[in-house]
Design a protein around this nucleic acid. Structure first.
Lengths: 146, 146
DNA sequence: GTGAGTGCAAAATGTTTGCACACAT
DNA sequence: ATGTGTGCAAACATTTTGCACTCAC
């Protein structure tokens, strides 16, 4: 719970963008949440915002490095970027579709050495692990197959 | 270079699906290629196939475990699955968008231990590393920023 | 007051579906 | 011969764009 996170208003101001209600709302809806799809985000706005605006804001936030997209099955989900949360990776449950963030310091070192072997200058990386979470595994025997 | 790969015709036959020209064509277009988008795949068919058919075939192939989707920026790309190529991961160049497969035995062990820590039964995993490949890095100083 | 940001409506893009015909078995 | 697979066209979902109005500065 470090309070050392950057301030969204500050980021907007310093990048020459206006601080508007829609932008703050989107930000608030993402804070402390698990990664969500565009539709889920739209849903959370309860018709306070237009879809187009949400796409534009998400776009802006991505350019500013406020949020990041992560792959989720066929599509993607968005979440606050590493600026606002520790860098981490994800466990995606194939049954309940919950995305669990996991910290992984060791992973970083691993990626670094891997990149060196391939003369590749790594900027970012994502690790996605699919499987079954503890809860679903427990009820797996009686659960319905999809 | 093991010749121990399964046969697409055999897979189709054994799963009770017909062996058709469109299916064989799609398979052929994927063999030995880097991951490609649906559009790229469609493009390669040179109007020999309908878009809808391609989606249906890709769908079928995914269910049969013949191909797999990997995330690529906002969307996804498809490639032959580990059945037809060694299990591997990807380096995605942010400049030329080339996707380079990398083998990574160590990664597997890492994922396993990580999963254990979280009481998560891992089924599959994907590692994506973004950065700049050797070629692009060389010309980076003179290249155009996007 | 003025320009950036938003909502609205419409367009563009990507994907899915229903149906009649064609092909694999 | 017969039932699966395909092409076609239309529906649907997702994302983008143009424009007039509104709000932040």
């Amino acid at each position: 719970m470090s309070t050392h996170k950057p301030d969204i208003k500050e980021i907007l101001r310093q990048s020459g963008n206006s601080i508007t209600k829609p932008r703050l709302l989107i930000f608030d809806l993402l804070v402390g949440q698990e990664p969500m799809t565009m539709y889920q985000l739209y849903d959370k706005t309860k018709n306070q915002l237009d879809r187009a605006s949400i796409y534009r804001i998400v776009d802006l936030f991505e350019k500013l490095g406020v949020i990041q997209r992560i792959s989720s099955g066929w599509g993607y989900k968005i979440e606050l970027s590493d600026k606002f949360a520790e860098h981490h990776h994800h466990l995606t449950c194939l049954s309940c579709h919950r995305v669990t963030p996991i910290a992984g310091e060791e992973m970083e070192a691993f990626v670094t050495s891997l990149s060196k072997q391939h003369s590749f200058r790594a900027i970012g990386h994502q690790v996605e692990i699919q499987g079954y979470c503890n809860d679903c595994e427990a009820t797996a025997s009686s659960s319905v197959r999809v």
